[in-house]
Amino acid sequence: MNTVSLYAGSGIILFSLGLHALLIRRHLLRKILAANIMGSGVFMVFIAMGARGESGVADPVPQAMVLTGIVVSLCFTAVAIVLAVRINKLTGCTTLAVDEESSID
């Protein structure tokens, strides 16, 4: 047991927690939170792996990738929130349930 595997393992636990909540939670804001937790888990695996290196010098490539990833997930969060607010305005709902007449199946 060392620092790297501790963090990498926790990253995977966070990923699983987020995935679980994204699938079963129905409130849109909770789904958004869950997706963010999932992303944080992935980033933790990246950074933990980048931290293995001789003399404690971290690998900058995973860090750069995570910086990119953080911005991308911010973009998705921002768009998802605006979509959720619009859906709430039009239907009064905070879930993805769709109107029967315009529904597909």
């Binding site: 804001l29 969060t77 929130i81 607010v85 709430n88 709902c93 905070t94 349930a97």
Partner: peptide, 18 residues
């Protein structure tokens, strides 16, 4: 973003599909 979004979500009383 989340706080502003939360503030903008209205009540769910109108929602017929919950």
């Amino acid at each position: 973003l989340l706080l502003v979004g939360l503030g903008r979500l209205g009540s769910t009383e109108r929602c017929r599909f919950s």
